[in-house]
Design a protein around this nucleic acid. Structure first.
Lengths: 102, 102
DNA sequence: CCAAGTGTTCGTGAATTGACGAATACACGA
DNA sequence: TCGTGTATTCGTCAATTCACGAACACTTGG
């Protein structure tokens, strides 16, 4: 599996991050990844098609909110980058995640 | 001056709020309103046209982030609703505002 | 080697966004 | 009442977003 692009902490942008969080689907995904780190892309509850979901993961990853690393088979493991993001923007992500209704 | 629509605290939506914050221009406006509450719409530093600015204020207002009340003449005074928003989504707005680079 | 499983990419289309200028609405002072 | 200042609304336009299915890429098990 090809490794994917991930922005460095220094390159994180607040507006980009907020935009990534602003979509209900992505916010749900992000929350799930934080509750259950290492989940594989196919294990999320959703009605959406695979391609749509893949696009959402891409937005999350490119914003710096998650890390996607090669997993077993052709899968990808999804990890939160919350700790890293907090270094740049303290409390933002944690506050948002706390407000997400399950 | 007509009073404008403002959502009740109970009707605030996290995604809507994050979307409102996700635009750099709006984030700038929001930060300015919080630093200097009661500012009038025309007193913001910007290159944008009146109509564009007005649209941004509308997004902020309808998301619940600011209150726009009639001011002297035909002006509108802009107030933060940060305290109200915090009741629904604790720390979210304050954390975002702290991360805004001046 | 082949089939099954897992994701990504591409092309498409509908809807939304963000920008603008022109027109409009409203309040106030002269 | 007539300008002037302030802000909203409207119509338009280009660009972006979000959704989908089809096609492709890659790994692994049989």
């Amino acid at each position: 599996m090809k490794p994917l692009f991930h922005p460095r902490v220094d390159d994180l942008d607040l507006s980009t991050i907020l935009h990534a969080c602003a979509d209900p689907t992505r916010l749900r995904l992000l929350a799930d990844i934080n509750t259950e780190p290492g989940k594989t892309c196919g294990t999320f509850e959703t009605e959406l098609s695979k391609s749509t979901l893949s696009a959402h993961f891409k937005v999350l990853r490119e914003s710096g909110l998650i890390r996607q690393e090669p997993g077993p088979g052709n899968s990808r493991l999804n990890w939160p980058r919350t700790a890293e993001v907090q270094m740049r923007f303290p409390d933002v992500i944690s506050a948002i995640l706390k407000s997400v209704t399950r």
